[in-house]
Structure formats: structure tokens, C-alpha cells
């Protein structure tokens, strides 16, 4: 039975940059701490890693009225409706969609080819020391039991909310957000954002898309792989029946 698609609504305006979600995620998923490096901002670690599924991006964006304006944005897998990672993955079951609409993974089925890393429009998938895929899976194990993902559960301000996707979009619109980021992109993202400003300012691409070459491969090259083979075999058979083999005694030469 299909259930209503679930999502995370992320509201940078409410985020205070406490990184409770980052910690809760590590705790629930038993991800080890790691050496990090100072890049001159409070953003830490600088980007997602194999043991960091969810992080707060710290964007310093002074405005005319506010010289120390920060934008805090949760960065993680977006659980795309049309997911580039799933499209390109050659191993069945390595990346799969849960009934709530999350894109989860199974390390045992992952063959470690890392194509998903190139297929994702958001540069999300990472791989561990055994070359297996790792990324946010929307706490598939918690939400299957009716719990919230660890990040949403921990967030003290409601900057990360988990719920039915439609009603989250509805509530953001009621709060005056005319456009919700990810409402329609890639068949709708599973992590949607209430942005006050242009997505660019928050470090998000305005129009995320699966790489063109992957779409072309999926729509043209894949069908051609069996149409081409079938065509070559069919043409051979047809030739054999309609014209027939070149028997030695029939071979003619121009002299």
C-alpha cells in the first residue's frame, strides 16, 4: 500500500547553527568522529564525509541592515524524486526507495563502483574505506517505525521538520514562502527548503538537474543496447532466409 510521501522541511531562518542535528545523526548512525581542518569559517567539517551525513553550512552573507548576517543551511542527501544516483547505479538494491520516499542504501549490495558520486546533482554520496556508498538515508530505520529522523527529532527550533511532504509545503506557503525550494525539481525533492532569498545565496543550484549524459544514456543508449543487438541478430536471420549464405561455388568475381 502506498503511503503519503514524507519529507524534511528545512528553514534556515529558524536555524541557530547549534549543530545538534549533526551530532544526533552521528550518534544514531554510530558514525565516528574525525580529524577536521579549519577553513576560516565556523563550518566544520568543511563538507560531507563518509561519516558525516548531515552538516550545517555556514554562509556569511552581510545584508544592508545586518552586518553579521549568517545563513545556516542543513546540507545532506535531498532524497530526489528522480534520483541521479539510483538511475546510474549498476547494482540492483544498492540504492533503493523506501515506502516513505527516502533514498536509502544497502552496503552489501553496493559493488563500490562509485558511479552514484558522479550521477548526483548535489555532490552527496561518499564512500567508506571499503568503497561502499554512504550518505543520509533519512533514518529509514527510524521512520519505518513511525519515529522522526534523528536530526529532526533533535532540532530545538523546528528548523528541520519531518512530516508528510504535501502538508509541509502547505505550511511553508502559509508562512509566506511563495516558492519552496525543491517543490518540483527532479520530481520533487524529499528535502525541501524555505528560502527567503535566492537559493544561490544558500549554496544551492537554482535548477538542479541530473547530468545530461546520464539522461541521454538512460533514454537512448540503454534501449539501443537491446534494440541494436536484437536488430543485428534479426537482420542476420533475415539475410540467411531471404538471400542465403555465400556458397563457394556461387561466389562471383569481377575479372
Amino acid at each position: 500500500m502506498a503511503i503519503a510521501r514524507k519529507a524534511l522541511l528545512i528553514s534556515p531562518e529558524l536555524c541557530i547553527g547549534c549543530r545538534g542535528c549533526q551530532t544526533a545523526c552521528k550518534s544514531w548512525n554510530q558514525l565516528p568522529g574525525q580529524k577536521t581542518r579549519n577553513t576560516g569559517t565556523f563550518q566544520n567539517p568543511p563538507d560531507l564525509t563518509p561519516s558525516l551525513f548531515n552538516m550545517i553550512r555556514y554562509v556569511e552573507m552581510p545584508s544592508e541592515t545586518n552586518m553579521v548576517r549568517w545563513l545556516f543551511v542543513s546540507r545532506r542527501c535531498m532524497h530526489c524524486g528522480d534520483a541521479g544516483c539510483m538511475k546510474i547505479c549498476p547494482a540492483p538494491g544498492a540504492l533503493y526507495r523506501t515506502k516513505e520516499g527516502a533514498v536509502a542504501f544497502n552496503k552489501e549490495k553496493c559493488i563500490g563502483c562509485k558511479l552514484c558520486v558522479a550521477g548526483c546533482p548535489f555532490d552527496v554520496p561518499r564512500y567508506d574505506e571499503k568503497d561502499k556508498v554512504t550518505k543520509c538515508h533519512l533514518c529509514f530505520d527510524r521512520i519505518a517505525e513511525g519515529l522522526q529522523p534523528a536530526c529532526a527529532k533533535t532540532c530545538p527550533t523546528g528548523a528541520i521538520r519531518y512530516g508528510e511532504r504535501d502538508s509541509l509545503i502547505g505550511s511553508a506557503k502559509k508562512l509566506g514562502y511563495a516558492k519552496v525550494y525543491g517543490e518540483t525539481d527532479l520530481d520533487g525533492l524529499g528535502a525541501i527548503y524555505a528560502f527567503k532569498d535566492a537559493p544561490k545565496l544558500y549554496g544551492m543550484s537554482e535548477k538542479p538537474e541530473i547530468p545530461e549524459s546520464v539522461v541521454f544514456w538512460h533514454k537512448v543508449l540503454k534501449p539501443l543496447a537491446y534494440i541494436g543487438l536484437g536488430g543485428a541478430v534479426a537482420a542476420s536471420l533475415l539475410h540467411y532466409i531471404a538471400i542465403g549464405p555465400k556458397k563457394d561455388e556461387e561466389v562471383k568475381k569481377d575479372e
Binding site: I88, L115, S213, F216, W217, L221, A225, G228, L229, G231
Partner: peptide, 17 residues
Amino acid sequence: VLISHLLHNISFDLMVI
């Protein structure tokens, strides 16, 4: 990797024909 993936599959199609 994306370019290689594309080329890998174009040559595959050529070969299976």
C-alpha cells in the same frame, strides 16, 4: 567519470551491433 560512462556505453552499443 561521466564522460567515461558515456563513452563506455556508446562503444558497448557499437560492439553489440
